[in-house]
Amino acid sequence: MQQEIDVNLFHSLRHLTVLGLSLITGATAWAQPADYPTRPITIIVPYSAGGIGDSLARIIGDKVSQILRQPVIVEDRPGGNANIGILAVAKAAPDGYTWLLAAPALTANPSLYKHAWDPLKDFIGVGIAVSAPSLLVVPAQSKVRDLKDFIGLAKQSPSKLNYGNPGIGSSMHLNTELFKMASGIDLVSIPYKAQPGVLTALIRGDVAIAFLSTGLAAPQITSGRLKPLAVVAEHRIPGFPDVPTLAEAGYGEANVVPWYGFAVPGATPHATALRINDAINRALSSSDVQDKLRNLDMVPQSPRSLDEISAVIRSDYEKYRAVIKKAGITAD
């Protein structure tokens, strides 16, 4: 009888040991992707083909393909103010084979739409490729000489000056609202479908002020059609060394610099995220990649760790959420 119990106990323990080893092996295989990647990677761009996001994804994707020795496919999924493409990645398998081309919509849209995503839980940032500086500009015929002049004028005439808004929830829109909060002024939003419409209105003098991308504003400043007051950037930008950043002008809380990068689904194994982060950082360290990114009028970024990227996402999300709530902005 005792021998039978011992035999049964032996078999039970053996069964548990085999089961435990299989569970450990399975978990290890999921958490330690030593052979990742073994098939093509897809980068989903939540914007139209031919735009900045599409071009950026292809530049980085081509270099990453060489580093990881697997094809990288760029798939454009525009629509819903970037929500369609972003949600597609949030719901994708967390296996490292579906990446998001991330932009300000990743951190702004959750506060604009009721049924969006949580950028801190549903995504892991794996790379910040470029920043996209913008210039705060006024028409050439404006009497203001600098940012201090404009703020003084706006305070003398509350709610009488307007600004060009290229899209609800766009980085230009939110930067303007952040600037209004930081400086204590009130400006009336004049909506346009995109930045070119704002540019035309500025040149004509139909709006008093607006943020524009450097690529769009710089030629008009050089030709004397616009005057720059400040730049949203980490540092002063080449070509306009006398134009201060908003932070230098005393409005650092409004100096939220838009960036483009990459993210993967939130449940992606840490080891996989590290592998992707390393590949993107190696791509960003390439001089030919940096040259191509500068040709997009973007500022190439230095390699960042997963923790550093997470901190940027959290900071932007919290700043955008605060200004959207205070200004009562909604896109639903």
Score class of each variant (00 low, 15 high):
M1P: 14
M1E: 11
Q3W: 10
Q3T: 09
I5W: 12
N8Y: 15
N8E: 06
F10S: 14
H11R: 14
L13D: 14
H15Y: 11
L16D: 14
T17H: 09
V18I: 11
G20A: 07
G20E: 04
L23D: 10
I24W: 09
A27R: 05
A27T: 13
A31L: 11
D35C: 13
T38W: 04
I43Q: 01
P46E: 06
Y47V: 12
G53D: 08
L56Y: 15
A57C: 09
I59M: 07
D62S: 13
K63H: 13
K63L: 04
I67F: 04
Q70E: 14
I73Q: 11
A82Q: 12
V89A: 02
A93K: 15
Y97F: 07
W99N: 00
L101N: 10
A103F: 09
P104L: 07
P104V: 05
A105H: 06
L106Q: 03
N109H: 08
P110M: 05
S111R: 04
S111E: 07
S111Y: 04
H115C: 04
D118P: 02
K121T: 09
I124N: 01
I124K: 11
G127W: 00
A129P: 00
V130C: 08
V130N: 01
S131W: 00
A132K: 07
S134Y: 02
L136N: 06
Q141L: 11
R145V: 15
D146L: 09
L147A: 12
D149P: 05
K155A: 10
S157Y: 15
S157C: 11
L161D: 15
N165C: 09
S171L: 05
H173M: 14
L178H: 03
K180Q: 15
S183R: 01
D186A: 10
V188Y: 12
S189G: 10
P191V: 00
Y192G: 06
K193R: 06
K193I: 01
P196Y: 01
G197Y: 01
V198C: 01
L202A: 02
L202P: 00
G205Y: 01
V207W: 00
A210L: 04
L216S: 10
L216I: 09
A218W: 03
I221T: 06
L229T: 09
A230Q: 10
V231D: 02
A233T: 06
E234Y: 08
R236K: 15
G239K: 03
G239C: 14
F240Y: 14
P241Y: 13
V243N: 15
T245H: 05
L246V: 05
A247S: 11
N255K: 09
W259S: 15
Y260S: 14
G266C: 03
A267Q: 14
T268N: 09
T268M: 07
P269A: 04
H270Y: 15
L274Y: 13
D278G: 11
I280H: 01
I280Q: 01
R282W: 12
S285P: 09
D288M: 07
Q290G: 07
R294M: 11
L296G: 14
V299M: 04
P300Q: 01
Q301M: 08
S302T: 11
I309E: 00
I309W: 02
S310K: 10
A311D: 03
I313S: 07
R314C: 02
Y320F: 12
A322E: 08
A322Q: 10
K326N: 13
A327R: 08
A327S: 09
T330Q: 12
A331K: 13
A331L: 13
D332N: 11
